[in-house]
Design a protein around this nucleic acid. Structure first.
Lengths: 248, 248
DNA sequence: AGAATAGTGTCTTTAAGACAGTATTGA
DNA sequence: TCAATACTGTCTTAAAGACACTATTCT
């Protein structure tokens, strides 16, 4: 159990208390480029530097609830339950003493994936919030570079064996858009016919929207539209091409 | 960042503080059966019930350090750095208000895998600690059934695409023993020749111990011995056989 | 007509599933 | 000699990779 026998008469005010916070790696695709939501810090430490959005978990909240609240505040999306296809997932908890110089902070990190990305404004605070390209996003305050990198790793891995990619897409999307999610997050190119075959051969990954089509690049054949299906797992997985020096 | 602007002048003693604890799902194989380390609670709430081992994170510790300390205390292994092949991995953090009736407890859950399992004794406390078969391990105190189930899920999933299975094995093991790890955790049978082919075809999964062999069942041909290799990932993965109603 | 994008078909290659058969040991 | 376990080989099947090709739209 959590509360060890030795501590049953523990005076919970006798020690320096832990602050519990959430940090959010909010990812989206804008014009085929992976972007992350960052806030500019107004105070020391790390004043003027970019950081992941986040904040305290309030006494009546779970970390998940706090993460959703912060997400709503920082993205300016208002009620986050509006956001169709939002994916919020716990990454892991960072608890090293000294990661915040002011006090003992234990932070639960989340990855959030959004389909469309409205311009951000800094919530109720004076700080600036912006979408920045993932590749241009360092160095961040605190240990946030590491959190962001782990979020990226995790999302890339989950694309292989889950249907997570649809969380980056609007409610109706083309297979080309879905493929671009994979290519952007993985940083590799994929063969279009083979990608198509794999996605359509996985029951429940996507469902066709009958009759609907969308012109993508201004010219060319309009692409059929699909919706996210009901499946969550991919069996067998859609493996990313093995990088050189890392073959099977 | 963690500490939100609004809270920079936050009085850290003004609110009910959070207690931060770790909970450990310690898994091992004993005679081909998956076992979990449990402690019997001596106090309310849940007095007399089994629970996962765990305890407070101390002011100078990270959650990982606290988990290793608890692991050493509860398993009676002494210094845990002795344990070759130990695998410790964060699962996720449970922070729902009310999960401990006494106070606000945020718990970082870990899964730990051990190769051999010495009999447990209850650490420095009067509580009993025992290895129980995984299937006989419910119902547990607090939300520990859920944590344990998630640990099992996670380990099963990681067997597919990592070399984690060797963490359940002693330093030198047979391919039959390695296969039994998969079969036990997944609860399925595997074809021996195919398993062998897959493992040996994955560079760095296992390395042969030249000349060594061990008699396993008292009779039959002695099996060649292997050590864990240097690889950590399995590409392509070793997928568990799809269950009925859950095909590709 | 030509560029651009979407979609189809097919051959090859890889890897997994199934399973027959051989090898080496103790009782 | 038989049961028990370890190991090898091979045929079949499933799925991915690598294309060549057709289709529909805009300029």
């Amino acid at each position: 159990m959590e509360v060890h026998e030795t501590y049953d008469k523990y005076d919970k005010y006798a020690h320096e208390p832990f602050a519990v916070t959430v940090d959010l790696a909010v990812l989206t695709l804008r014009s085929g480029v992976l972007h992350v939501l960052l806030v500019e810090r107004g105070h020391e430490p790390y004043a003027g530097q970019w950081a992941l959005p986040g904040g305290f978990v309030r006494p009546d909240e779970s970390a998940e609830t706090a993460a959703l609240r912060e997400l709503a505040e920082e993205t300016g999306l208002g009620d986050v339950s509006n956001v169709s296809g939002l994916h919020l997932e716990q990454l892991r908890t960072y608890s090293e003493p000294g990661r915040d110089p002011r006090m003992r902070v234990v932070s639960v990190a989340f990855a959030a994936l959004l389909p469309h990305a409205p311009e951000a404004h800094g919530g109720g605070d004076a700080v600036q919030a912006r979408w920045l390209p993932y590749d241009a996003a360092g160095p961040l305050a605190f240990d946030h570079d590491r959190i962001l990198a782990e979020a990226h790793d995790r999302v890339g891995a989950k694309l292989e064996y889950t249907c997570l990619a649809t969380a980056f897409c609007p409610p109706e999307f083309t297979l080309g858009e879905l493929q671009q999610v994979y290519e952007t997050v993985w940083g590799t190119g994929l063969d279009r016919p083979n990608f198509r075959r794999k996605v359509l051969a996985t029951p429940g990954f996507v469902e066709p929207v009958p009759g609907a089509a969308r012109l993508t690049g201004g010219r060319g054949k309009p692409a059929a539209l699909y919706r996210a299906g009901t499946a969550t797992a991919l069996h067998p997985p859609l493996l990313r091409p093995p990088r050189e020096g890392h073959p099977a």
